[in-house]
Simulated assay, not measured.
Amino acid sequence: MAAYREKINELQELLKEDNINFKLFRKQCFRGVPDDSGLRPLCWKLLLNYLPPNRKQWKEVLRSKRDLYKQFIDEMVVAPKDGRTDCPRIDVTMDDHPLSINPDSKWQTFFKDNEVLLQIDKDVRRLCPDISFFQQASDFPCQEIVCGPDSDSIRLHNRVQYTALSAGTVERKGIGMNKVSYTVRKAQEDYAVLSSGQEAHWEVVERILFIYAKLNPGQSYVQGMNEIIGPIYYLFATDADSDWREYAEADTFFCFTGLMSEIRDFFIKTLDESEMGINGLMNRLMRKLKECDPQVWNRLKNQELEPPFYSFRWLTLLLSQEFDLPDILRIWDSLFADENRFEFLIYVCTAMIVLLRENLLSGDFPCNLKLLQNFPSMDVHIVLDCAVQLALSCSLSS
């Protein structure tokens, strides 16, 4: 307990400095930010380069960033009108219309936005299904949206309903058509309806991802990004300090954007074969496994148990699907504090395989595949300690 308190005190003293010693700060965070210290949200903002090491700059940085995000909401969520209702009849041969191929067509923009929004909407509703947090109401809903005169029409999840298709079922008896019945196919809404003036946390995450997609049209939204943003938003939205919690949405957006700038190559298919692409990353993992445990590496190779079968998800989602949320937060302390950004991720994944060596060496292909695709429950500190030991042994051997 004394060592635990000392760890908290050391981190608190570092954060009080006018100009934070970032090298020492990273070292402390790499060992894990104490859960009940209340310091992790602030530490992540620093590690993800949202806040500078100079404390005197924080106030201005936060003001400008949060004002900018509010502007994004006004321009991309509140202000746009889809133009399909409450408008006079026009000559579609002369003006913009749904079949226009003009890239500047507002209808083209609307259809593209809704295609992206449809996927985001599906993904954010199933964020962290083991906890109810994302279905709960936010303490600080976006007032421009929940209290505006057009609240229902500008909520992003309501826009998705417009894309629901009607399907006709033709029933025949003998020769000729007897009956056509029409139904509207929609995803089942298995979440609690909140009262007026409220919005759920998943709606906030949906808005962040939509704005990110709009600002990054070359990459847009890719399935899996919801798993990256989820833990960050959860951490900021549960900050014990309400002054920080009030701006969880804006702070999450910029931290997520900064993180994606470092791992975006994982999500770009055309870069899969590059050294920084996902295939290059999986090759690095296999080289590290061969170096650390050639016997296990040889076993997987002989069984033709290819890395994409299990490690693709590990690497692209930073292990967010392999551990419970509290363990993910602890793992990400070390990943974000890694000086060689995400080099430690390779060691963590290698440690996960090495810790299963007895089962892998005795198991056949189906058993080993199932084991790696469903990593067994394990104390996260055992995994991290093993990863540190592997990193130390590799550095000594080189």
Rank of each mutant, 00 (worst) to 15 (best):
Y4V: 12
E6P: 10
K7W: 14
I8M: 09
E17V: 02
D18V: 15
D18F: 12
F30V: 10
C43D: 09
K45R: 09
Y50D: 05
W58V: 09
E60S: 13
L62Y: 07
I73W: 00
I73R: 01
V78P: 07
D82V: 07
T85E: 15
D91M: 08
T93N: 07
D104V: 11
N114H: 10
D123S: 08
Q135M: 12
S138W: 07
S138V: 03
Q143V: 11
D152P: 06
L156A: 02
L165Q: 15
S195C: 07
Q198A: 11
Y212I: 01
P217Q: 11
Q219P: 13
M225P: 05
D243V: 14
D251R: 02
F253I: 08
F254H: 00
F256S: 06
T257H: 10
I263H: 06
F266H: 01
F267C: 04
I268V: 12
L271C: 12
M282G: 03
C292I: 07
P294M: 14
V296H: 01
F309V: 08
S311E: 01
T316C: 12
L317N: 02
L318W: 00
L319K: 00
I331G: 00
E339L: 14
E343F: 13
E343L: 12
V354G: 02
R357W: 06
N368S: 09
L369F: 13
K370G: 13
L371Y: 04
N374T: 06
S377F: 09
V380D: 02
V383F: 00
V383Y: 01
L392N: 13
